[in-house]
Nucleic acid binder design. Structure first.
Lengths: 111, 111
DNA sequence: AAATATTATCGTATAATTACGATTAATTGA
DNA sequence: TCAATTAATCGTAATTATACGATAATATTT
């Protein structure tokens, strides 16, 4: 009964919502900030930094990787994570477009 | 066991996450776009526009109102909704700050 | 080869989200 | 007053998200 009806909406709406979902947990924002600061780091560094279990951190990393906000490169037994700046740029553009779109269509409706 | 540990993170992380949560469903993006286009409208207009039941639309409106992205003014038996542009401005600033912050701390870590 | 280190995945429990129909509350119109 | 309109809320079901411990998988070190 409560199946998400995501597919009934436009592609832009879905895209914005998907990005927003990835950013909708403070742990994931913290991960992005930490990665930006350190340039890159391994999972263990994040586990040491965050008040969460290793498996939980791993789950959040997976979520960020899913939308391409971060990249993970396996280096032997470790995995080196870093921000995917290309996606960050894309995200900035998508949000800018949304907010600009809101403003423009609002202006057009007013006179 | 799976209680959200939101409070264990910084205020900025929590703030960004809360806004992102409000934007994390395509129906709510669609509502914002529709409101911007029409300037304002009543709940019933949105129900006619979206592929969702009246109670579900009402729930999404509540979610958007919670973070202040929209305002609802009761006019007799109807409720007139419109976008709160002040909050939109604030949201733009918060996102801009986040992405700029990521970039700046990244630059600082690299040389 | 055996022990260690690191991370992903599995299983599971709890909580939050999404959705709907039914009901309630409040105002307007007949 | 009574019916109709409108929207919020309640109750409920299903799905998704969050979190953890345990385990598995892989590579490194001894």
């Amino acid at each position: 009964m409560a199946t998400k009806k995501l597919e009934l909406f436009g592609v832009e709406e879905q895209e914005v919502a998907a990005i927003a979902s990835a950013l909708s947990h403070p742990a994931r924002i913290a991960i992005l900030k930490f990665l930006a600061q350190k340039n890159d780091c391994i999972c263990g560094d994040l586990v040491a930094e965050l008040p969460l279990a290793q498996s939980t951190v791993s789950q959040h990393l997976k979520e960020l990787k899913k939308v391409g906000l971060i990249k993970g490169e396996i280096e032997g037994v470790k995995t080196c994570y870093c921000i995917n700046w290309i996606t960050i740029d894309k995200v900035i553009k998508i949000f800018s477009f949304l907010f600009e779109d809101l403003r423009v269509s609002h202006k057009n409706s007013c006179c």
